[in-house]
Every structure is written in C-alpha cells, then in structure tokens.
Computed example of a mutant assay.
Amino acid sequence: MGRIGEVQAPVATRDALARGRLRASLVPDLLVEARRIVNTVIAGWHGRRKRGIGENFWQFRPYVEGDSSRIDWRRSARDDHTYVRDREWEAAHTVWLWSDPSPSMLYKSAAAGVSKESRALVLALAMAELLSRSGERIAWPGLTDPFTARNGAERIAAQLSHAGALPAKPDLSAIRRFCDIVIVSDFLDPVEETMTWLDVLARHGVRAHLIEVADPAEETFPYAGRTEFTDPETGDKLTAGRAETLKEEYRLLYTARREELAGWCKRLGWSFTVNHTDRLASDALVRVHMAMTADSSRPGLTAGHAGLTASHAGLTAGGGDLGKAVE
C-alpha cells in the first residue's frame, strides 16, 4: 500500500531556524496565491458598512417616528413618503489575523492539493488583503500592532518572512473590546485547551471567527493494515496492527471535538468555518465575510467549559511507513 500522506518539510531537522526558513520561502508565493483568490471574491466584498458619523452619503431610508436623523426634504418631495439621509460610518475597524504555525499544520495527504499550513497562511493573507483594501486596521498578535495600509497583506507577509520561531499560541490579552479576530488552525488540541486559550477574547468582548483547516484524510481515516502513526506535536508513536479497526472510534472523537468547539463558538456569538484542503480557499473567505458583516450581538462572558476531551488527532501516517514531522 502506498503512502496516504506526508509531512511537508524540505530539511530533515528539528532546528527552529529551518522552520523559519521554510516559512520565509513559502510566504512570497502564498501572498501571490492570496491575491489571486481575493480577486475572485472582491466583487462581493462590500466591507462592514453602517450608518453613523461621517461625510460620505450612504443611503436614503424612510423616516420613522422619533428618528433623530434630519429629514431630506428634497428627496421626500419626489413622492408621498418622508426620507432621511444616512451618512456612512467612517471609523476604521480593527481585525486581528493569525494562522497556526504548529507542526501538525505541515500535514498533507495525497488527496489534498496543499498542506494545512499553506492553506492557513493563504487564508490569513487573503483576509489581510481584503481588509486593507476596505480601509480597515489589521494586526497579527505577537508580530505587529494594528495599522492601516493599502499594502497591508504585503507588510504582514514581510514580517512573517523575517520572524523567528513563532509561538504555538500567541498571547491574546492585548486584543480589546469591539475588535474582531480571524484564527486559522486545525484546532486538533483538546477542546478544553482551545477554550482556555480563547477565553480571554470572550471576557474582553472580542468577536472571533475560527477557520478550521482540515485535510480530507483526517476526516475519512483511510488507513488499513499495519500502520505506525506519529504525533507531530509530541513525537509519540502508535502502532496499529489493523488500523481499520480504529476508524469508527477515531471518527466519533474527531467529529465530537469539532461539534463541541463549533457549539461553544455559537453560544458566544462567534463564527466557526471548516475549510478542506482539497476544496477552494475562497469558500472560507466568503463565509467569514458573511459572519463579519452580520449584525450579531457582541460576545459575552464564557460559560463553563464542560465538554469532551478528545485525543490529539494530528497524526501523520503512511501505509506501513512512518510519517515524520519537522518543527
């Protein structure tokens, strides 16, 4: 049986410098790919427009009793209704972006076109490009402070290219109320660990948008026969004499982890999107855009984190071969 998947790594070393060089070599091409994807969805991207203080006209709307807006008598004279003129809110919004740099993101099966890390970086850079074109402030936790620039995606890409070893989970405590954050990861850690890490966002009134990047092999578990699995995060190994006997239990744990995390996000007013590496990245961008423009309530305090603790599913495997991970 041939290999089902492999870890994408150009060098057989666990040195942090090698990981940094790998990221630096990926970023320029991924920025080009991100801009290509943006150009396919930009026609439907209208920003998060709303009425408020500003100089630019936005819309006419019917007057309702008690409305504090000034009536536009010229527009109202055209028919039998009374209209008010709305201006567009011009204050820039701050959106934080982050993609997971952990070793499990390097996995790529034969059914996927790209590794999870590649897809995550493309999604984050594409969001940066879209938000920069809309005049929003963007930032990357642990890497940049919020800034506004038309070349925002390029600036973040340059910072990533020259960054050293990035933390597996950055400190999110500096992100303040009414900001948004887009987090792209495989979210394969135990659910409680993920909730604990993100709890500070809920307590600060930040609205989060989680994008789970999934390789198709991680969902279907296409392994059979004697298979040796390696956890890329810890290096722990598991040898299964008949891997197919683990399929149902594995899929139950994998699905339960996702459903628990998605349900927790829904209770907080956050969005949760799944993007598979054998499908289009633009699908996730459209879904996140819809979630960011939705007039949902701001997140409140987190409820108790009662849920399932699933085993880490970020295993690399080959049919009878050992998959190796590079940090």
Rank of each mutant, 00 (worst) to 15 (best):
R3G: 09
G5K: 05
E6H: 12
V7Y: 09
Q8K: 11
V11F: 13
A12Y: 08
A12I: 10
T13V: 14
D15F: 08
G20P: 04
G20R: 06
R21F: 11
R23W: 04
S25M: 14
S25G: 09
L26A: 11
P28D: 09
P28W: 02
D29L: 12
D29C: 08
V32S: 12
E33K: 13
A34G: 10
R35F: 04
R35K: 13
I37L: 13
N39T: 07
I42L: 10
G44L: 05
W45P: 01
R48Y: 02
K50V: 10
N56H: 10
N56D: 15
R61I: 12
V64W: 07
D67I: 01
D67M: 08
S69H: 14
I71R: 04
D72A: 06
R74T: 07
R74P: 01
R74V: 09
R75Q: 15
D79T: 04
D79Q: 00
H81Y: 11
T82F: 08
V84Y: 02
V84A: 00
V84L: 03
E88S: 09
A91L: 12
T94K: 06
L97Y: 02
S99L: 09
S99V: 02
D100M: 06
S102G: 10
S102A: 13
P103K: 03
L106V: 05
K108R: 15
S118N: 11
R119N: 09
A120C: 10
A124K: 05
A124M: 15
M127E: 11
M127G: 03
A128V: 01
S134D: 15
G135H: 05
P141W: 02
P141E: 04
P141D: 06
A149M: 06
R150H: 08
R150M: 04
N151C: 02
A153F: 00
I156F: 03
A158G: 11
H162C: 12
A163G: 05
L166F: 09
L166V: 08
A168T: 14
D171P: 04
S173V: 08
R177D: 09
I181T: 00
V182C: 02
D186I: 04
L188F: 11
D189W: 03
P190W: 04
P190V: 02
E193M: 09
T194K: 05
L201N: 01
A202Q: 01
L210H: 07
D215W: 07
E219A: 15
F221I: 06
F221V: 05
P222Y: 08
T230R: 08
T230F: 06
D231L: 07
E244D: 14
T245R: 14
K247S: 08
E248R: 15
Y250M: 06
Y250P: 09
L252I: 13
L253S: 13
Y254S: 13
A256R: 11
L261V: 13
L261I: 12
G263P: 04
C265D: 06
L268K: 07
L268M: 13
G269R: 06
T273H: 03
V274P: 07
N275I: 11
N275V: 14
N275L: 11
H276A: 14
D278N: 15
R279Q: 15
L285I: 14
L285M: 04
R287L: 12
H289W: 06
S296Q: 12
G300M: 03
L301N: 08
L301W: 03
L301D: 09
T302D: 10
T302S: 15
G307I: 00
T309C: 01
A310Y: 00
S311R: 13
H312W: 11
G314P: 04
L315E: 03
T316C: 07
G323M: 07
G323H: 05
A325K: 01
